[in-house]
Computed example of a mutant assay.
Amino acid sequence: GHRFWFLLRDRDTKFTASVDAVFAGAGIDVVRTPPQAPQANAIAERRIGTACRECTDRLLIVSERHLTAVLDSYAEHFNTHRPHRSLGQHPPDLPPAVAPTPDSTIRRTRILGSMINEYRNAA
């Protein structure tokens, strides 16, 4: 359901005119970053770097399908559980809070084969 209006990309030579034509054919405007301005795409570079350091650098990816499954699982963790400093140590999609009680237990959820563990109060 989401529609993309533009694609922000750098000036790497691997992006040829035919790549731009594919996006233009889909009605997406291609916006290139300014020359010699590595900070122009800093938010995307930070997000990609975080995904690599926390996820894909620690796994042996065997196929495109496997990569898609891993990145989907990591994106779910990143948006619903992982703390973000800019959000006061809360995830972007904050789940409903469960108030801990003296007799409540902690439940662990294993993500990506126990590479990432999420901990929540059991209701």
Score class of each variant (00 low, 15 high):
P102K: 04
H90Y: 07
A99G: 04
F78R: 03
L87K: 02
R108V: 13
L112W: 04
P102T: 04
I61F: 02
G49W: 03
A97F: 15
A99M: 13
L67A: 15
R108T: 14
E45F: 06
P100Y: 05
R47Q: 04
C55D: 01
I48S: 04
P91R: 02
H66P: 04
V62H: 10
P83H: 05
E45T: 03
T68Y: 11
F78S: 00
V98A: 09
E64R: 12
E76L: 09
R107P: 00
R107W: 10
H84V: 07
R108F: 11
A44Q: 09
H90I: 02
T105I: 10
E54N: 11
C55R: 03
D93F: 06
T80N: 04
T109Y: 11
A69C: 12
G49C: 08
C52D: 06
I48G: 01
I43H: 15
H90V: 03
R107K: 13
L60Q: 08
C52L: 13
H81W: 12
V62R: 13
C52V: 14
H66Y: 07
T109F: 13
R82G: 00
H66M: 07
L112M: 11
G88F: 06
P102A: 06
P83W: 03
P91G: 00
A97E: 13
I111M: 10
H81Q: 14
R107H: 13
N79Y: 05
